[in-house]
Amino acid sequence: MSPPFSEPAAPAYLPLPYEALLAPRPLAQVDLLVVHCTELPDLAMARQYGEQVRYAAGTGNSGHYYIDRDGSTQCWVAPERIAHHVRGHNPRSIGVELVNTGRYPNWLDWDHQAMEHPYPAAQIDALVALIARLQRQLPALAFITGHEDLDTEQVPASNDPARTVPRKRDPGPLFPWDEVLAAIALERLPTP
């Protein structure tokens, strides 16, 4: 006989130092989950980047949730706050960052655009569990998409400005969309 199902523990709440400066919002307006990858080698470096103040309001760029390769999950910005994770869609969305090297450290070099690191099963399982938890907490949550689907801007390559590269590529070509969509009750947001 199988043991009864037990829900994974809630994500560790480790708020960013400026979280209280982020604008509040009603949870009823959150209908979109945006999947990102950190494009950094580890969670510690992601935290360093997340803590950096980049705006006059005293805030920086961050997602709401961070999932490490082993599936451990942390909440850095409460869902009731608007995090800065995707241009033009922050008020309606939750940002989930998966630790993955991506294009680090030459993000915008034209000859360094491959994203070669797969997402471990533990990380994808944790993402699916987090989405299930968020669907219970956020009644309007209906859609999921990738950062690259919303931010399609092409920018000059850092090592050859005559070429252009995608500003954002995350979660990238190795993200298992079919597997994730089969396991959750969210619809993939149509691309603009």
Results as ranks from 00 to 15, higher is better:
77 V>P: 00
72 S>N: 11
79 P>I: 03
73 T>R: 00
66 Y>C: 00
73 T>K: 01
52 Q>K: 09
54 R>A: 11
75 C>H: 03
67 I>P: 06
65 Y>F: 15
61 N>K: 13
69 R>V: 02
72 S>V: 04
50 G>K: 00
52 Q>A: 14
75 C>P: 03
64 H>L: 06
47 R>E: 12
56 A>D: 15
45 M>I: 14
78 A>I: 02
54 R>Y: 14
47 R>W: 11
44 A>C: 07
52 Q>L: 14
46 A>K: 04
57 A>W: 02
47 R>P: 05
65 Y>D: 10
72 S>M: 05
80 E>N: 08
50 G>M: 05
53 V>R: 07
68 D>S: 07
80 E>F: 01
78 A>P: 05
50 G>D: 13
72 S>G: 09
73 T>Q: 05
72 S>Q: 09
47 R>Y: 09
79 P>K: 03
52 Q>N: 14
59 T>V: 14
77 V>S: 02
54 R>M: 14
62 S>W: 05
65 Y>I: 06
63 G>Q: 03
74 Q>K: 10
67 I>C: 11
69 R>C: 02
49 Y>K: 14
80 E>V: 10
78 A>L: 07
66 Y>K: 01
58 G>K: 11
61 N>D: 15
54 R>E: 15
55 Y>P: 01
71 G>I: 04
71 G>E: 09
57 A>Q: 10
